[in-house]
Every structure is written in C-alpha cells, then in structure tokens.
C-alpha cells in the first residue's frame, strides 16, 4: 500500500450496518465525522472528541469502540455498526430499545446511541449479564440527564427478556 498523501482524500471501503460502502476521506478525518458528515448517519453523536464521554460509541468488528478515537482510514476493510442498525424496522424497536423506552432510560437522548451500542455487544456476548456487568460497561459512558438508574434497569429488563426468549419453555 503506498503512502497516502495528507493533502488528498482517499477511498475507505468498509462494511457499514451490513452493507458495503465506499467513502472518501482525508487521512485525518475521524470515523465520527465520516459517519455523520460524509455518509449522513447522524445517529452517532459527538460529545468530547477525546474518548471520555462515550456518546460516539459504535461497534467496530463486533466490539464497542469510540468513533472519535478512530481515524476513518483505520476501519478500511472492517465492519462498523451504528445505532441505525439496531432495529430492523425503524417503526419497531429492538428489545433493548423498547426497554429503554419502557423504563425511561433516556431524557435528552444524546448519549443514548453510544450506550445502546455498548450494551448491545454485552447482551449479545453475555446473555447472563447482571447488574455489575451492565454497570461496568456503562461506566464508559457519561449521561447528564438520567442519573443512570433507569438505564441500568432498562438493560436488566432487556437481558431478562432476551433470556426468556432464548428459553421459551423454562
């Protein structure tokens, strides 16, 4: 791969929410800016651009990651998932999203997409996740509205629901 010149845009091919996309980005462009301003998926929010607040959290190759600490060029050939992929039908919420609505796990909603992306990984990988696991994953996110309690409750409810669905006869 040749050295990519700073002054030009370069192609970035990757999988975004299950589809192959080709975007163009300067070397210095952050993944958060690529998603929001080049591709137009504004569900991923930017809160601090130094990796602390967690609002920009997306999934890269199946792991939760800060889009603001990732250069667009670093996801070349990778698999990126954003909040827009969480429910198949926008009119129908996923169990995790529905639990957030039911338990009032959000107020202004700005930090919410990032939190959903972290918890989505946790609940997928660890169907038995309990309160402490949820708190541990949530500790990488700042929420200024809710005081967190209803977010934890929503996540616990979603985990419980998921377990019931997986073992319908139990």
């Amino acid at each position: 791969m040749p050295r990519m010149n700073a002054a030009r845009k370069h192609p970035v091919d990757f999988t975004l929410n299950g589809r192959t996309v080709r975007a163009e980005a300067e070397n210095r462009m952050l993944l958060s800016d690529l998603l929001r301003h080049e591709i137009g998926l504004t569900g991923t929010h930017v809160g601090c651009e130094h990796g602390v607040c967690g609002a920009c959290t997306v999934q890269i190759d199946g792991r939760p990651a800060r889009a603001c600490l990732t250069l667009a060029q670093q996801v070349r050939g990778g698999d990126v998932r954003t909040v827009e992929a969480l429910s198949r039908d926008p009119a129908e919420l996923s169990p995790l999203q529905a639990a957030f609505r039911r338990h009032h796990g959000l107020q202004c909603g700005f930090c919410t997409p990032g939190i959903l992306m972290s918890l989505d990984v946790l609940l997928r990988e660890r169907p038995d996740a309990g309160r402490e696991d949820i708190r541990e994953h949530l500790s990488g996110h700042l929420c200024r509205c809710t005081g967190y309690a209803t977010i934890v409750e929503a996540a616990l409810a979603a985990a419980e629901e998921q377990r019931k669905e997986e073992k319908p006869n139990v």
Binding site: P2, R3, M4, A6, A7, N27, R28, L30
Partner: peptide, 21 residues
C-alpha cells in the same frame, strides 16, 4: 478539535513500516 493533516501509511510488511519510520 480536529487533527492537523498527516500522511498515512498502512504497510504490509514490518520492513516497510521500519523503512517509513
């Protein structure tokens, strides 16, 4: 709060990386 510009290299071998460094 955006980075200043830089060249970017994604080498395929360690030697290539070391040469660039």
């Amino acid at each position: 709060m955006k980075p200043a510009s830089f060249d970017f290299l994604c080498p395929e071998t360690t030697e290539e990386a070391l040469a660039a460094l």
